[in-house]
Design a protein around this nucleic acid. Structure first.
Lengths: 228, 228
DNA sequence: TCTTGAGTAATAGTAATACTATCATTATAG
DNA sequence: CTATAATGATAGTATTACTATTACTCAAGA
């Protein structure tokens, strides 16, 4: 059941807007599934074309290359998170409560109701956890940044930083803590599954709430204002 | 001036030990320089062969593929850090002081004296900051982990976790904090230069001490024992 | 109704990448 | 002086990451 939101992303990321056409939507949907399945390195436009019974050339009309497609998908995820945070914190007064809701959302976004039929947000979250860092770990980071390719991540991070500042206006590192909360939410979900010695989190039955608890604990130690 | 340490790494990472031969040492030395220069995605064994006036086939005798070479280089870095931490904390009694030294080392390893003539550790640190996460963000992470490819990172992380436990035995997340300190040291050095809105750190004149200050501040807030 | 054009498919082709294989040459250790 | 390990030289293959061209399809505008 779609609630009809439309995610708006930097048009420089694509040649033709994939949200506007059936083929474009198929590209978004199936690239998420395929990258999740075989990993970004093995993913090619040819394989994707095979999966959706289209052709390489048709996909190249939408995205210049697979790196821009990755940035597109990752940006989509940050926009979606941003949207979730907005609706989940609507009418919440307490900044501290807001911050807890933000942490909940960062970690357990995958539990939310699907918002758009051609995007499996739960798989997209797994993809971002596994491949997200590759979007900016590249020689082109400065150029890509100038082109505004990371705006969605930066805006999400800034949104969180603002709430951190509300909670403790004296805290010196609101932006660093904000981006670190996002990174930790993803990294420790990944570590718990694949490299458990790098974390203290234990996940059972797909329950990621221990990650939430840890982040809440960190935040409550780091930030001083204990008002509700 | 070499002090003659030999870094020992998982032999499964290579086909022939590159530390044992002049060509092997050239491969290590120049792959660091070349990956730093053009980025891991653009890096190929052919280009490296051109740089060292050897051939692709010769390089393939040392490393199965460029991914294993990356893991090798990154593992080298973690071993080197581990070694630095050991000598820098030698004879230090106070756990809290130890932890500060560890943070210093994580951030400013590049200032240390070169230990091995065919490795430019300062450039290697920049490489790990930029490309390190790619070592384990792959579909083969579980297999690679079983083969012990991440042992050096895990041991470094565990070494730091132990000191954290000494400082505050009550703290519930020593392993997570340890790996997070390593990640933050690298990420925020990267963000400060390339994506400044994601951090509060400002770097001028190659001076990364603000990153140290931030990590020390986080640690002192998170850990309770205030004994010296 | 005819035309136009946007979107897509089909096909082909290229340069580079990621390897593998073979054989000749050089260095060195016994 | 010889045996053998290491390297170099060369060639070849399948796949990747594109670009180009042509043709088909279908819906809207004249």
């Amino acid at each position: 059941m779609s609630i009809g939101i439309k995610i708006s992303l930097n048009p420089k990321l694509y040649l033709r807007d994939p949200q506007e056409t059936p083929l474009g939507q198929k590209i978004i949907k199936n690239s998420i599934l395929l990258i999740d399945e075989i990993g970004f390195e093995s993913f090619t436009f040819k394989k994707l074309a095979g999966k959706i019974k289209s052709t390489e050339a048709s996909i190249y009309r939408y995205f210049e290359n697979k790196h821009l497609l990755l940035i597109y998908l990752v940006s989509w995820y940050w926009e979606w998170l941003s949207y979730l945070i907005d609706i989940n914190t609507l009418n919440i007064e307490s900044s501290r409560k807001k911050l807890n809701i933000i942490i909940d959302t960062l970690v357990e976004a995958y539990r939310e109701n699907p918002a758009i039929e051609y995007v499996n947000e739960s798989i997209l979250q797994r993809l971002v956890i596994a491949e997200g860092a590759k979007a900016y770990h590249t020689k082109a980071v400065d150029k890509d940044n100038k082109d505004g390719f990371f705006i969605n991540f930066k805006e999400l991070s800034e949104k969180i930083a603002k709430v951190i500042e509300e909670v403790d206006p004296q805290f010196k590192y609101p932006h660093a803590l904000a981006s670190n909360l996002i990174e930790m939410a993803n990294n420790h979900s990944f570590f718990a599954v694949h490299l458990p010695r790098l974390t203290d989190i234990k996940i059972s039955d797909e329950d990621y709430s221990p990650v939430k608890e840890m982040l809440c604990h960190f935040v409550s130690k780091l930030l001083n204002n204990e008002k509700p």
